[in-house]
Simulated scan of single mutants.
Amino acid sequence: MVKFYQHTSSFEHAWDNVTYAFWLRYPNPFASHVLGCDVLDRSVDPATGVLRTTRLILKKGVLPRWGRNLIKNVDTYIIEESVVDPRTHTMVTRTKNLNHVRVMQVEETQTFTVHPENSKWTQVKTEARIISELRWGLTGRVESFGINKFMDNSAKARKGMAHILERLRQNAAMAAATPATAGAPSSGSSSPSKE
């Protein structure tokens, strides 16, 4: 049996800002379980401007008491592949775990688009599949745990993105408030004398 999850959310920020925040979302206070994130490959199609990125993410896992004999090392490697199309204002990300796949495989797809009702906002559609190949009557139990944990982590991920977006907004406001003449000589200063 497979557990499915779907959720659509929105951010009151422009698509450009949300997709930029996506690359900056680690670290944040809601992602303490993320231990590392590395870019493995990145390329831009010169004809279309489409950006393709592959990243490897290391996360610290959590197991219920009844599952602690199933896995010795709970750290999980996640492969994340993303495609950003600046012409259609669409970003699609796909992630899946590389280890512990027999116990539980989590496959997630997120699609970031301009919000259909407000062009200054961004809509995010999240879809996931949780699959366990365990037998002995544990499949349903593992998949139920997986879907509940995924929903909890998705809520934290949205809070993390909101945190990063707010920091970007604050930085932009500070930059806009800084006088453009900062560092330039004041109008009352005299010209340097020629020797």
Rank of each mutant, 00 (worst) to 15 (best):
Y26C: 03
Y26G: 04
V44F: 09
L40V: 15
M104I: 14
M91N: 00
N97I: 01
Y26P: 10
N69K: 11
D85M: 09
V84N: 10
G67L: 04
V106N: 02
Y26M: 14
G36A: 07
L70C: 02
T53A: 05
S82R: 01
N28Y: 04
W66K: 12
Q105F: 06
Y26E: 12
V83M: 04
E108N: 08
T48A: 08
D75S: 06
V62C: 13
N69S: 12
R68K: 11
C37H: 15
L63V: 05
V92G: 00
R25Q: 04
M104D: 12
W66Q: 12
R65P: 05
D85E: 02
C37T: 11
K72E: 07
I71C: 00
T88E: 11
E108P: 07
P64H: 07
L24I: 10
V50R: 04
V84F: 10
Q110C: 13
F30A: 14
V101K: 13
E108W: 01
R55V: 00
K96H: 11
V84H: 05
L51M: 09
G61W: 01
V39T: 11
L40Y: 08
M104H: 11
F22Q: 00
P86C: 03
I57C: 02
A31P: 08
D75W: 03
T53W: 04
M104K: 09
Q110T: 05
R68Q: 09
I79K: 10
N28W: 06
Q105P: 09
R65I: 03
R102S: 12
H33K: 08
D45C: 10
E80T: 00
V106S: 04
V92T: 13
T88Y: 08
R55S: 03
D75C: 12
W23T: 12
R42Y: 06
D38C: 13
N28Q: 01
D85W: 03
D85N: 14
Y26Q: 13
I78M: 05
E107C: 04
P46Y: 07
I71L: 07
T109E: 15
S32L: 14
N69Q: 09
C37R: 14
V84R: 03
R52S: 10
L51Y: 11
H89M: 15
V50Y: 05
C37E: 12
P46S: 05
S82M: 02
N73Q: 06
L40P: 07
Y20I: 09
L63D: 01
I71A: 05
I57D: 05
L98T: 10
D45F: 00
T48R: 01
L98V: 09
P29S: 01
H33S: 13
L58I: 09
R42S: 15
P64N: 11
V44G: 15
V39A: 08
L56I: 03
K60I: 06
R65T: 14
D85Y: 04
H33I: 01
D75F: 05
I57L: 02
S82H: 00
L63I: 09
M91V: 08
D75N: 12
T48Y: 01
V106W: 03
R102N: 15
S82W: 02
R52W: 00
T76I: 02
V74L: 10
Q105H: 06
F30K: 15
V83Q: 15
V74K: 06
D41T: 06
N73V: 15
T88W: 10
T95P: 09
E108G: 00
I78C: 07
G36E: 02
E107Y: 06
